[in-house]
Design a binder for these strands. Structure first.
Lengths: 348, 348
DNA sequence: GCGTCAATAGTAAACCTTCTCTATCCCGCG
DNA sequence: CGCGGGATAGAGAAGGTTTACTATTGACGC
């Protein structure tokens, strides 16, 4: 593989001069010399060695994104946003599917540290699991000390995200929209209590109820996983509790999609018998039947701005936290409530 | 940031010895010395510099995956498979969404080359666009010459994939399944003719027709994009051609999903008026209403085996090409044909 | 005609590892 | 008792780049 030494030799200049040309350094090189170097580089198909450069600059133009699972459309969208920002500036994006396993997460961050990644973006929410996070924090601190940028897009053990979304307000707005349709008994699929973001969303649900004078009934809140399977199970749990409801709001779209499926399997009609609302507005939300009412999160923008924040931090600039707005999107899965609330009087 | 020099000093040994311990080299180091080094590394929170190591070994433990778009569930699944294989061996995965733009693809591969990625996996199909691929091939050749592994998971300009899927057989099997239900007039949403994989699938459609004694009618084949939007447009095109059909097979699920949506908008019932079948079995296929009949591709396995192939190639082993099997999955979107084929006599 | 200065080019150190040699020690054997 | 050789440790080069420092040139003012 050809190195800058070869280029310098062919151009008849020193490596220093060749370097100044190919690295576009801010240093005066005469036009003819520059042309000779460029020509030599072209002829030799020279591509600079980013490892050597990184060794000197103390970091590689690579940004790692820690996600729960890249096949979860929420995270795929965020990663794409990061990539949108990164590609233009010559950064590469490393995806790390942690499965929300602190062990695995730490091992990914260690790997990123070992290759001196310029930044790590934590796309997913932190877990309330203090004893398992020691190694993770150690690596993060070391990277920060080494000049790398650490960015969070969700609440985490050590605070609020640098770039985030107002989860509580978003859910509260959806609760408001359902209340506006006439619903008074709203169930909530809350997801895992250990996830900070799920907590925020649950708080938003409670706030929404309070804001619209609706009564809270703990039997209507179901905790569990954060995926479609948990959504289906949530419907089962809800129907077993014998507390009436006319709508189900979910802490994310996957949960709502699972609920939709289970309701269909049980012969409960949406939105005729019960309304269903999700959160996130992943692509699938628009294409189900009925299409899913949800709250749109600017996920791609979240990723892009997350990268931009990292880039600014790398340049030594401090920037204030940003909260991106959410938007309620009403589709086919919500309507005015049925006269007989589920499960009492319903088909259960 | 602490280096191996610090570790060596603290342990009271030379850097060579420290290196031999921390890099788990195959070299005898006495137990007490080893323990002292390990202790020092632990105390100093030492993490080896992968750049320095990579500079010497001539490549970094990083594998790039070139995809069309990471938010396309097909590719997300493949990338996850690559990650599954890579993580255990300490490799990091770089995602590159090329948007099927040869320019962008080349720039990604150049970047991967510059950081001496150990492997590049092309997950998406090649484009028949010879003049724009020169830079791309140059980089790929250079990387291969430098010892990196180049793996294709789809047909491409220079041949067949190292690890692939029998696209033609899969589509032919689906055509057979539809024929088995009694369909004789099968439309096909073929995707872009410039994509090698789309060509294979179109060939499979033709083969399937032939195998079941069905007549080919060019009016029933619609080319176009490879996404949901194109699927919707395909339905419009089909209905405008006034050639009767009772089923639509699509070259991928996104196309089929778009078709499903447009059919619903036009008040055409699936599967009562027309059957619809997809290809790939992305997660969304199971959750639409009606759920989508499709052909399952082992995407995650495809990714995992793609990585394993790369890993073997890195170790200098040659392995034979692998074709993974596909499986027809019949769900709610297919049924026996309607008495009156669309569009003649249908609701159009 | 000489010192000063700007423009341009070159030299060599540094970044952090790994690995090839070389050195030391000690054991056992002839 | 001398020596071969195995086990262990260290010295130093190499890998490709950037950059602080130094050197050379030529123009210019005096």
């Amino acid at each position: 593989m050809t190195s800058i030494t070869d280029v310098a030799r062919l151009a008849g200049v020193s490596v220093a001069t060749a370097s100044r040309v190919v690295s576009e350094a801010d240093y005066a090189v005469s036009a003819p010399t520059r042309a000779r170097v460029l020509e030599a580089a072209e002829a030799l198909d020279y591509v600079p060695n980013a490892l050597a450069r990184g060794l000197l600059k103390r970091h590689l133009p690579v940004v790692g994104v820690i996600v729960h699972d890249i096949t979860d459309p929420y995270f795929a969208e965020v990663v794409r946003g990061v990539e949108d920002g990164a590609h233009g500036l010559g950064y590469l994006v490393v995806t790390c599917s942690s499965e929300r396993d602190p062990q695995r997460e730490a091992s990914y961050v260690r790997l990123l540290r070992s290759m001196r990644a310029a930044a790590v973006i934590f796309a997913g929410s932190g877990l309330d699991d203090p004893n398992l996070n020691a190694e993770l924090s150690r690596h993060a601190a070391a990277m920060r000390a080494g000049g790398a940028a650490i960015v969070h897009l969700s609440p985490h053990a050590h605070g609020e995200p640098e770039i985030g979304v107002d989860n509580a307000a978003g859910i509260a707005a959806m609760v408001g929209a359902l209340a506006g349709l006439g619903h008074r008994r709203l169930a909530f699929l809350a997801g895992p209590a250990s996830l900070y973001v799920a907590r925020d969303r649950l708080a938003g649900y409670r706030r929404g109820l309070a804001e619209h004078g609706l009564e809270e009934d703990e039997r209507l809140v179901v905790e569990g996983g954060f995926d479609a399977e948990a959504g289906a199970a949530g419907v089962d749990a809800l129907l077993g509790r014998r507390a009436p409801f006319t709508a189900i709001a979910a802490a994310n779209d996957l949960l709502a999609l699972g609920a939709l499926r289970r309701l269909a399997e049980r012969g409960i009609r949406v939105p005729d018998d019960v309304s269903v609302a999700g959160f996130d507005d992943i692509a699938a939300a628009a294409t189900t039947a009925p299409s899913l009412s949800t709250v749109r999160l600017p996920l791609r923008e979240l990723g892009r701005r997350g990268f931009e924040h990292a880039d600014r931090a790398l340049a030594g600039e401090r920037s204030a936290p940003v909260i991106l707005p959410t938007e309620v999107v009403l589709r086919g899965s919500t309507a005015a409530p049925a006269p007989n609330p589920l499960p009492i009087g319903g088909p259960a």
